[in-house]
Nucleic acid binder design. Structure first.
Lengths: 227, 227
DNA sequence: GTCTATAGACGGATAGAC
DNA sequence: GTCTATCCGTCTATAGAC
């Protein structure tokens, strides 16, 4: 796509014809989205340092300089991937709010998290890799976004315990267990595949695993069945 | 340490004076061990590609060329770190054999795994990072060493279920949950620290977390208490 | 066995034509 | 907005003196 007669647009006219502006905005939007998706894959496969901008650009079918036109530095691109990931995770986390019944709320959350591991395993890997290597590029997300969410959930779980709906468990430990176990199916899928001797879990096998995890977690909570 | 008159040792004499050979072997041993420890730390902090041989050598207080004298390539060093790690993990895994009582065996295993996360968090991170990025450098360890171990443990757990000592759980899912949760305390410690707003878990806080995890896992198994 | 110096490849980022 | 050519830094690995 060439710029054509609009080259000096910014100088001559602050307001370009609407259709042209829309077209240009559209190009930026799709290119950025495509680069973000390709970056997520390469970062997941190779890590932040193992991934090169050349690899990401090649996967996106663009020259490397083009990538640097949309994202000034590799780190800026990486940050955007992490922010996108948090948004997705946060939407999933809202499932927790849907019910005041602990069994329903917790099993719903576990299912949503497993579904997220299934739907976006590469993203989960980028997130995990970043934390493993010290979370240096996402301290703000953790303290400003994840921490407040966690604290409200702990309060809710503590109340369930106080009302005798759950065994006297530590809420944070429970949430860590749910995160660790559900994300294990995304992050450690290479190990799971090697140990099961399979190429990948089928949708059916994944659904079965989901229900097994739900069963284990619900029993771990010592939830009184809602009789 | 210089080679001195022993430079042509291999040509002139297959059997050097015992004390000299022992001293030289000792140098190699300590330097290799020291390099392995430093490599584990740098690989954990930066990942395979993020770590440079220069950083590892500097941390070990040796010139880079010296590192390449002991380990021909960065990948060979990395492999050795992974193999060391497996040996440690495998020793910990043996705890499982100590008892035929499921509650005792499983809670003992969980405690040992938590202790391993406490004692060697850097190693756990190297292991996790390698798997997240596809486990390309440890396929053989997974299929030849971890898989057989897992299969024997699945048999034992299935027998406990058949004997009615545990609820009807899927053994593999249970083991994945134990791995994921216990290793979470090593691999995701940066996240845990950010969420708890603390520098690090004290020994006491870690022991408390351990007992919470044991409680959750044992309840998840639906173990009949050994009354 | 130790260490300096450097070869050779590759990475991130930019200049500047179109 | 696109893309070629290129700068400059860093990385792995080795040569070769001591």
């Amino acid at each position: 796509m060439r710029v054509d007669e609009a080259t000096t647009e910014a100088v001559k006219d602050d307001v370009a014809p609407a259709p042209l502006r829309r077209r240009k905005a559209h190009i930026r939007e799709t290119n950025e989205a495509h680069l973000l998706a390709c970056a997520e894959a390469v970062f997941a496969e190779r890590g932040l340092e193992g991934a090169s901008t050349a690899m990401i650009a090649e996967r996106a079918g663009l020259p490397k300089a083009n990538l640097h036109y949309y994202f000034p530095t590799k780190l800026a691109l990486y940050r955007r991937v992490l922010e996108d990931l948090f948004d997705d995770w946060h939407r999933a986390a809202d499932t927790f709010e849907t019910s005041d019944d602990p069994v329903e709320a917790i099993s719903g959350y576990v299912r949503t998290k497993m579904e997220l591991s299934r739907r976006r395993p590469l993203g989960s890997k980028v997130w995990a890799s970043e934390i493993i290597h010290g979370a240096v590029h996402m301290q703000d997300i953790l303290t400003e976004r994840v921490k407040p969410w966690l604290e409200t959930r702990v309060v809710v779980i503590d109340q369930w315990v106080a009302r005798g709906l759950l065994a006297p468990i530590d809420a944070q430990t429970l949430l860590f267990m749910i995160w660790a176990t559900t994300q294990h199916y995304a992050d450690f899928d290479a190990q799971i595949r090697a140990l099961k001797g399979k190429r990948a879990l089928s949708q059916k096998a994944f659904d079965t695993a989901t229900e097994e995890v739900v069963k284990l977690v619900i029993r771990a909570c010592g939830a009184k069945s809602p009789s």
